[in-house]
Design a binder for these strands. Structure first.
Lengths: 209, 209
DNA sequence: TAAGCTATCTAGACACTGTAAAGATATGAG
DNA sequence: CTCATATCTTTACAGTGTCTAGATAGCTTA
């Protein structure tokens, strides 16, 4: 009666899967080396043989996240039906579908951002995101950079505010039946109007009261 | 020879100051109840009498952050020289000047977001931010919400990307001498052009290769 | 003044964490 | 079959949050 073999066989992948289970179920603070080991059914010191330390495990998991996001972007870039802003929608959709994982991917204080696998996965994701937006130049002007970083800031900020629960009260104040998707579409639509940003009426010169 | 009195006198404020010192010097992961106690020169269990638990301390510190940001917004709103986007500039400037504190303010997984002092400080900051943008309505349309949340997403996303170090390589690819402020100004300027967002040329129909 | 009450702070303990060291077991090359 | 290597376990230690009990100081009331 052999219950669990001494050697797991694919412990690295099992630990990453266990880590994602934990982060999704209990949140990032609950993801510890020992918790991942328990979830995978191995001894508490086993993870260190595959990831070195806790930042190592977190970083490899973040790399998995970038790789998954890159795969979704690749699909979109290959689709003949893709529309404007589809990259932006994929960004927010990925954040919504993988909240804790997405937050981990941008939590440098807990990551070893010099890990080659992480650097590579992130670079590939960025490359595909730029491709989805039609960015081609390697030597952009400041104006072009403003456009590129502005778009990234917009979707990243929306994602972060969404995951932190900051947009829930906003929806409550919105017209009845407004969904989070509606709100994001409204955000995208707002960038096409010149009125995006603070209104001129808010300035002192023309202020009413 | 009385070295340190048994009763501190203003330990709560001293612990908050110690906590901010630690978070600024060593980062958020280094901020523990015991570290704060050491920094303030009291026993390891003293903080719990003032904040309950670790999330309690973190939340009160986050509330201090919102109060400080609110104070800066109040100055701006009172200034007769204020210009468009000054609220946005203050947002990013605050993030840059208080990186770890700003990140803590939006890290709900480590906070007790139901704490009254936190709720109040945050609400006041939001109120002043809305005022800086000239938002007045209590029943906004979806279109107006797109505008409001779009602006917030933009400055919040830029701040988060900046603090996570994601914009450093961008500056490296920018024209020589471009500063982070220049980049943010370019982002702001890009919202006034209709070209903000993905270019139409990136769509399949008109794609070259 | 003096007693007692309450808020404040310390000391000790426990379970949990990351991580290092050493031992056990399986795998595969020769 | 031998044995070197990779994989996993066991043991140990310092650090953490948090609970409990105890010590101290300040304040009220007489």
């Amino acid at each position: 009666m052999k219950t669990t073999p001494y050697h797991h066989g694919a412990l690295r992948e099992a630990l990453l899967a266990a880590a994602e289970t934990i982060i999704r179920r209990d949140g990032l603070p609950a993801l510890t080396l020992r918790a991942a080991a328990r979830e995978a059914g191995v001894s508490h010191a086993a993870p260190s043989h595959h990831f070195g330390d806790l930042p190592g495990l977190l970083t490899e998991l973040a790399a998995v996240g970038f790789a998954r996001f890159a795969a979704q972007l690749k699909e979109i870039n290959a689709s003949p039906h893709r529309k404007r802003w589809d990259g932006a929608r994929a960004y927010v959709a990925f954040a919504g579908a993988n909240p804790a994982l997405f937050q981990l991917m941008f939590r440098s204080d807990r990551l070893d951002i010099s890990r080659p696998s992480f650097v590579a996965a992130r670079a590939e994701a960025y490359r595909l995101l730029a491709q989805a937006r039609g960015v081609v130049t390697d030597t952009p002007s400041v104006e072009e950079l403003g456009n590129i970083i502005g778009g990234w800031s917009l979707i990243h900020g929306f994602s972060m505010l969404l995951l932190d629960g900051r947009l829930k009260p906003v929806l409550a104040a919105a017209p009845k039946g407004t969904s989070m998707d509606d709100l994001f579409e409204a955000v995208l639509a707002s960038t096409d109007r010149k009125s995006f940003g603070p209104t001129d009426e808010s300035l002192p010169a023309s202020e009413g009261g």
